[in-house]
Amino acid sequence: MSSSGSKLLTLAMLCFIIFLCPLFSTDLASAAVASPLKVGFYKESCPSAETIVRKSVEKAMSRDATIAAGIIRMYFHDCFIKGCDASVLLDSPTAERTSKANNGSLRGLEVIDEAKAQIEAQCPATVSCADIIAFAARDSAYTAGGIYYAVPAGRRDGLFSSVNDVFPNLPGPDHNVTILAEKFANKGMSVDEMVTLSGAHAIGVAHCPTFSKRLYNFSATHAQDPSLDPDYAELLKMRCPPGATTMVPLSDLAPQNRLDNKYYAGVRKGLGLFTSDQTLMDSSLTSKMVADNEKDGASWGRKFAKAMVHLGSLDVLTGEIGEIRTICSKVAPGQ
């Protein structure tokens, strides 16, 4: 690894010390340190809100278990841009959802819309779409992997969404470990959280174009990415011939649609589908984290829960800032 990459990782580790260490000494209910969010935010104003979301997620997963990965990804794509403000749901020609990272690949929108409609019928203009996404991501992690955590709520919905905000901020499938660490550090998250949240790639699917460069004409000296296991590369070539736009599983090691730590065994063996997966083996710091997560699935699950809560507490809109949308894809009239 380059010296500049090591410096960035060291910088990111300082973020780990500054931002994450206090979380390890608290329970999940108070994990959003210095955040105005709180667990049970809707206990009085809309006590059925979290139950409605949970039932919507369970119903959707009974039809299609892969939807859990889509909802967790939606949460990540929403929160990582400008904080969890449901800006990823706004529908306009220049919104975030039109980005190459989202257009045609956002899954679970109907789950959020169904839950929102039911909540609006019981508690009009009370529960934000941003909180519904956060609840749904938690319920997806629990249903798919038995990972449960309390979700501090009280987020407000954003009024703006711009496609131009996506790529400067969002970590991408082709990013190396140095860029990933920088993106997470810029967000206020640690390298350990970066490696931990990567474990969500145990479930879900990816379109061939998002990783096919690793298979064909990788560089002037390598026809395919040398960090990719050769047998796995041949399997991927069968699934993704040149020009294919089909989808393949993100992980071939994890049991189907089961969110667990087997993802890390795959990365260690050269079976990471994306560059952003396999690059976790490119530094001694992150490769040790991969090994630790592979050895102790229970510990990884606890860290995953804390990282999800931490991500959901950053840069949020609360109080009178933003709005409570009645339809998640549209800014409320008059705003």
Rank of each mutant, 00 (worst) to 15 (best):
Y149V: 06
M1W: 06
L20D: 15
A136K: 04
Y142I: 00
R63Y: 12
I81Q: 02
M61S: 00
T210P: 01
G5V: 11
N169C: 10
V39L: 10
H310F: 14
E323I: 02
V290M: 13
E44F: 00
G312H: 03
M61R: 01
L259R: 05
E114F: 07
D192S: 14
G188P: 06
I71S: 01
S128T: 03
F211Q: 11
R302V: 06
T196H: 13
V195R: 11
V267W: 13
A65P: 05
C208K: 08
H175F: 10
S56A: 15
S329L: 05
K43W: 00
Y148R: 09
P36C: 04
R302S: 14
I147Y: 12
Y42N: 07
D113M: 10
A307P: 10
V290C: 10
K187C: 07
S161V: 03
P249R: 04
Y42E: 11
L259G: 07
G272A: 11
R258G: 04
V177P: 04
R97N: 15
A137K: 01
A12L: 00
Q118W: 06
D315R: 13
Y263S: 00
I321L: 11
K183E: 09
L273T: 12
I132D: 07
K306F: 11
M194N: 09
S287W: 06
E320A: 13
R239S: 13
A95L: 02
I52L: 10
R258A: 15
P171R: 02
R73S: 06
A121Y: 05
K306Y: 12
S161Y: 01
R54H: 06
S162V: 02
L280I: 08
D229L: 03
P22W: 15
G108L: 02
K187E: 04
N186M: 15
T94M: 10
L273E: 14
T196Q: 13
L37N: 05
E110F: 12
G297V: 12
I71P: 02
V195S: 09
